[in-house]
Amino acid sequence: MDIVFMILLGFPVLSMIVGMVGYYLFKNILVSPLVVFLTTLVATFTVFNDSFLVWVFVYTCLAFLSGLVVKIFKENKGAI
């Protein structure tokens, strides 16, 4: 698999899935972005080079935003 494809499509989708599933499992919006941050930070220094550090913050924000969207939808569903 091409590394550019993984960075631009695979990892963002995976981080958003982790954000959604993490909110359902832990009922906390910050746990899954923390897991994504730590995992991608370790991968930056072991698998990729230092230029991947920008993507660490992008994937963390995506995980946070996807967890936030799930939280908002879940709260709105309970209000109906």
Rank of each mutant, 00 (worst) to 15 (best):
L53D: 05
D50R: 12
M20T: 04
T44H: 05
F48Q: 14
I7D: 09
M1F: 10
E75M: 12
V18R: 00
Y59D: 06
F57E: 06
T60P: 03
L14S: 07
L68T: 10
M6H: 11
Y23C: 00
I72K: 11
D2L: 08
Y23S: 00
D2E: 13
I17Y: 01
L41A: 12
L65P: 03
K71P: 04
S15K: 02
I3A: 09
V56D: 12
L34K: 01
I80A: 10
I7N: 13
T39Y: 09
Y59A: 04
Y24T: 02
D50E: 15
L65V: 15
V58C: 11
V42Q: 08
K71D: 09
I29V: 15
L38N: 03
V31E: 01
V21Q: 00
T60I: 07
V4P: 00
L41F: 10
N49C: 04
D2V: 03
S15T: 14
P12A: 08
T40K: 05
I29W: 03
W55K: 13
N28S: 10
V36I: 14
N76C: 07
S15A: 15
Y24E: 06
P12F: 07
L53F: 15
Y59R: 09
V21Y: 02
P33R: 05
F37M: 14
V58W: 11
V70W: 02
A79K: 14
T40D: 06
M20E: 03
V18G: 00
G78Q: 15
V54Q: 09
A63E: 04
F37S: 04
I7P: 01
Y23K: 01
L25Y: 06
I3M: 11
F5T: 13
L62Y: 15
I80S: 12
C61L: 15
G22C: 04
F45E: 10
N49A: 12
C61W: 12
K77M: 09
F48K: 09
D2M: 08
L25V: 11
I80Y: 13
N76W: 08
V58H: 13
Y24I: 07
F73N: 11
L53N: 08
K27S: 10
T40R: 02
D2A: 12
M1Q: 07
V31Y: 09
L41Q: 08
A79C: 02
V42A: 15
V42N: 09
K77N: 10
S51C: 02
S51Y: 15
L38A: 14
V70H: 08
V31M: 07
I7E: 12
F57T: 04
L53E: 10
K71V: 04
M6N: 14
V42K: 05
G10D: 05
I17N: 00
S32I: 02
A43H: 09
M6C: 09
T46C: 04
L14C: 07
V35A: 14
S66P: 05
C61I: 14
G67Y: 05
K27G: 04
V35Q: 03
Y23Q: 00
L25S: 06
V42D: 06
V21A: 08
V18K: 00
A43Q: 13
L53R: 07
K27W: 02
